[in-house]
Design a protein around this nucleic acid. Structure first.
Lengths: 197, 197
DNA sequence: GTGGATGCAATGCAGTTGCATTGCATAGGG
DNA sequence: CCCTATGCAATGCAACTGCATTGCATCCAC
């Protein structure tokens, strides 16, 4: 490696460990409960160590956000990989969106944190560009597999539908079944079919 | 009046004034920046007065949330009133949804605060029931004017689309034009037409 | 008047925040 | 064998938090 490294610990691993703790705290007490000491306690390390790996709180937040984005990517990739080769566009989209929705209890925590960050970046536009990038890429991809004219608007709509379903799932307004029914109904419209899932 | 009232000020008006300040603070610094003193300063009153009108911070938050919900109601009602009598279902829905979206700069602040509260209640389910109520009512109303079978799922989808558009508008992912195009495209699908707005 | 309720300001307090600083243990490289 | 870079703990600090308390000015009922 290039560095001189008279060290022994894996820097990146430690940072991820801390980011995990931050996400746990944020998931059940909100982003506003995230503090150096709080995160440190949750991670079972000293507050000083957190400061050692993140010189500032914002740096820690930014890293956590990056972790979340990365994990979403991975979830999608895995879900798509579990499909056979050459799935139908409709199944592809349904699988991808279902993978991103906070449907299971385990993924709800991630969703809560993501939602908190959404509100966070709506006010502190510092980290917004990266989210924007993700969205643009997703819209482009969805549009590329959608039939019909004006695929861009339809793709934007589908993505927004997903986001809204996610929000309502987290707020308890929709049940998982309702959300999936709404998604399937929308896919029915887009693909002109009337088959369920 | 029923009360003994040896007072002179309008209690409700003061509370609304304070809630306004809270919303201004939340809109451009986030809900986590909301504190008694901060809100008081923004409202141009003493911190003690804020405590006088809201015995606890949570009480103040709850009141602000109620104000937001009420204002949304009003915006919708006004927008619908501006339509003539007997508008087409499609125009009705489009008008209603457009009234709820943070399209203009003025309404973006409200949207930011609403989004913050969404994340807030996703973690503190205390105020969630009232939001749930709103959603159920909206879904019911939308379903009642939608054509086609499975109007419930379609209504849930349309509402989720709206919420997602709102989120993306706030995050800067979508422009107002993109959001409206996506909305219209979706309405096209629902109503089987291909006319624009 | 006078008594009591009310509107509001001011202050105090314990707890928490982000961050800077200091101290020390280790561990390779020279 | 030193010695310098690193990992990490501990402490300190000013700022801030929500809230309780106190004090005073006003105003209405009597």
């Amino acid at each position: 490696m290039i560095e001189v490294m008279p060290k022994k610990v894996d820097h990146q691993e430690r940072r991820t460990l801390i980011a995990d703790a931050l996400m746990r705290v944020a998931a059940d007490q909100g982003l506003e409960a995230v503090s150096l000491r709080h995160v440190a306690a949750e991670a079972g390390v000293s507050a000083g160590m957190v400061q050692h790996y993140f010189r500032t709180k914002d740096e820690m937040m930014a890293f956590a956000l990056a972790v979340i984005r990365e994990r979403s990517q991975i979830r999608v990739t895995e879900a798509l990989a579990r499909l056979g080769p050459d799935p139908s566009p409709r199944l592809l989209l349904r699988t991808m969106i279902a993978a991103l929705l906070p449907l299971a209890e385990r993924t709800r925590d991630d969703g809560r944190v993501a939602l908190a960050f959404l509100a966070y970046t709506a006010v502190r536009p510092a980290a917004a560009p990266s989210l924007r990038e993700d969205t643009v890429r997703l819209v482009g991809f969805i549009a590329s597999v959608l039939p019909g004219r004006d695929a861009d608007a339809a793709a934007a709509g589908l993505l927004a539908l997903m986001e809204g379903l996610g929000v309502y799932l987290l707020g308890g307004q929709y049940t998982a079944e309702q959300a999936l029914r709404a998604l399937d109904a929308h896919l029915d419209l887009l693909f002109g079919s009337s088959t369920g899932a």
